[in-house]
Computed example of a mutant assay.
Amino acid sequence: MDMAALIAVVGVAFFFTYTNGFHDSANAIATSVSTRALTPRAALAMAAVMNLAGAFLGSGVAHTVSQGIIETPTGDTGMAILFAALVGAIAWNLVTWYFGLPSSSSHALFGGMVGAALAGGTEVIWSGVVDKIVIPMVVSPVVGLVGGFLVMLAILWLFRRANPHRAKRNFRVAQTASAAAMALAHGLQDAQKTMGIVVMALVISGHQDQGDPIPVWVKISCATMLSLGTYAGGWRIMRTLGRKIIELDPPQGFAAEATASTVMYITSFVFKAPISTTHVITSAIMGAGATKRIRAVRWGVAKNIVLGWFITMPAAALVAALVFWFVHLFWG
């Protein structure tokens, strides 16, 4: 196996993780920044540290990515498939970042994997795609929407007699904890997805056996790149999540973050399913905001975001397939 091919795939995987960090940093901190619970730089620094810590909390999602979506390809074709999958995901990340659209880096990666695998003649594990990607993609935003709405209703009821100004001050403090929990969950979910790709590359190249533990250097590298990307910031997407969907206040921000982080911890540890942090936090923001009044949510912006969710996987798959055909001319 050509060592240059392995280095190229691992390098592109790290760059994908970096784009994931600045693309999805808004997930963890947009609500806290928009409610002025945290300053932007303090929020980004906190998110970067918690992303780094979260990457070491488990490995179930990484194993799902490396073994449950496509059959592990072999040889130079296998390396070309992984390279093309990553390039397709990176391309979609950059396009949606440019337009400020909070799409899912996770589903861009999965779409890239499926598109490149189909182009390269590698079997797609469709049962895994349905069970671990499609069903969670549909269910998790619904849970986030309903959960955000119910948690916010509970907050309104519990603090119905509290002084409004004092309550908002206290929830600004509470948002520091909920934003940290969100960032920790983001690290738990998203760093592992790249770990799964790097492990596949190591298996294909013969440097690791299928089922072996994830090397420590892989965990550290993926977590570090995610944290660096997070600290670079994603201001365009942050404005969409923090302001364009709805003008949040601290209790709503806390409700959205608490709901989204809980959903991500459950799916990571119980179901080992790689869900989208973007989908969950966006829907939780909509749910929490809807308690103010239904029309308070800018549903036109929300509709565009949801449409972006549905085209993410096909778009990334198409780009990945085209990249594979091009790359295969050199690696084939």
Rank of each mutant, 00 (worst) to 15 (best):
142 V>R: 11
316 A>W: 05
137 M>D: 15
44 L>D: 05
221 S>P: 02
209 D>T: 14
148 G>N: 14
249 D>S: 07
223 A>H: 08
42 A>D: 08
62 A>F: 04
274 P>W: 00
2 D>A: 04
18 Y>S: 05
142 V>I: 11
100 G>C: 06
74 T>F: 06
211 G>W: 04
226 L>I: 01
114 V>A: 07
3 M>N: 13
216 V>S: 12
44 L>E: 04
30 A>C: 10
245 I>Q: 01
268 S>F: 00
119 A>T: 03
148 G>S: 10
24 D>A: 12
158 L>Q: 13
139 V>N: 05
56 F>A: 09
229 G>L: 13
220 I>F: 14
147 G>M: 03
163 N>A: 15
174 A>Y: 09
258 A>K: 06
144 G>F: 01
219 K>I: 09
275 I>T: 03
312 T>Q: 04
195 M>H: 08
150 L>S: 11
226 L>T: 00
6 L>H: 06
194 T>R: 01
40 P>H: 02
142 V>Q: 06
66 S>Y: 12
140 S>L: 08
213 P>A: 03
27 N>R: 09
178 S>G: 06
287 G>A: 02
247 E>M: 14
38 L>F: 04
303 K>Y: 13
108 A>L: 00
292 K>W: 10
197 I>A: 07
324 F>L: 13
137 M>H: 11
58 G>R: 12
189 Q>N: 08
109 L>D: 01
59 S>F: 05
156 L>K: 10
171 F>K: 00
123 E>W: 15
32 S>K: 05
137 M>W: 07
110 F>Y: 12
180 A>M: 07
22 F>P: 08
311 I>F: 12
279 H>G: 04
188 L>I: 13
100 G>N: 02
301 V>K: 10
107 H>D: 03
302 A>G: 07
33 V>E: 07
69 I>P: 02
116 A>L: 06
96 T>K: 00
35 T>M: 05
58 G>F: 11
161 R>T: 12
187 G>L: 01
7 I>G: 04
87 V>Y: 07
83 F>A: 11
77 T>C: 11
92 W>Y: 05
285 I>C: 03
55 A>W: 04
206 G>Y: 00
79 M>C: 03
15 F>A: 10
117 A>L: 08
227 S>M: 13
173 V>M: 14
84 A>P: 01
272 K>C: 09
197 I>P: 00
